[in-house]
Simulated assay, not measured.
Amino acid sequence: MIPTKDTTYRLTATGDGGVVSQPVTIQLNLPIIQSFTSNMSPDQYITHGQPATLQWNVLHAATVSIDPGGGLVKAQGSVQFFPMKTTDYTLTCTGVGDPVRSTLTVNVWNPWE
């Protein structure tokens, strides 16, 4: 059985000296998204082509990526995007277990849409 979360097992050994039992905890260090934010409030709009800054901080991830347009990034950082339309950005972390994701929306006002 492969654990999918931190798990404590009890190991027991029996021999001539009696029975010895000891707990053992397996810590998986699953990826954790501590933060994923933008420099704007959720109800704020920017004009198409203006910069939006995304910031993030992730723990225990083998890979971290931002889509669309960010590709692989470091576990902590920030990047500027210049969206032409309202865009959902997804931060994806892989490592032990299933991928962990967080999505935020950058609202863009475009008078031609």
Rank of each mutant, 00 (worst) to 15 (best):
S41G: 15
Y9M: 07
L104E: 05
Q22R: 15
T90I: 06
E113P: 01
T7G: 01
G97H: 04
G15I: 09
F81G: 02
S102Q: 11
K74C: 04
D88L: 08
T7S: 09
W56D: 07
G71Y: 07
Y9D: 04
P68H: 12
L28P: 01
I66W: 04
N107A: 11
I33A: 10
Q34G: 07
C93N: 02
R10G: 05
D67I: 06
Q50M: 12
P42M: 12
Q27H: 08
P23C: 08
S21F: 08
Y9G: 07
Q44D: 15
G70M: 04
Q76D: 13
D6W: 09
T47D: 14
T8C: 06
T105P: 02
D67S: 13
M1P: 03
T94L: 05
P31F: 01
R10N: 14
F81V: 04
T92V: 02
G77H: 03
L54T: 02
P51H: 11
G18C: 06
N107C: 08
V24N: 01
K74W: 01
Q44G: 12
T87F: 08
V19P: 03
D16T: 11
T4L: 08
T94G: 06
L72H: 05
P51C: 15
T47S: 12
G69R: 10
Q80P: 03
Y45S: 12
P68C: 07
W112P: 00
Q76V: 12
D98T: 14
G69C: 13
L11I: 15
T47N: 15
Q80I: 03
T53I: 13
T63Q: 11
G70E: 05
L91V: 10
L30M: 11
T4D: 07
G49M: 04
E113W: 11
N107L: 12
Y89G: 01
T105D: 04
L59N: 07
A75E: 13
T94V: 08
D88S: 15
Q80L: 03
V24M: 02
T105C: 09
C93V: 03
S41C: 13
G69S: 10
D6Y: 03
Q22H: 11
L28M: 12
G70V: 06
A62C: 08
G17A: 14
A52P: 01
S102G: 08
F82L: 15
Q50S: 13
D43W: 07
K5C: 03
Q22M: 11
G18R: 09
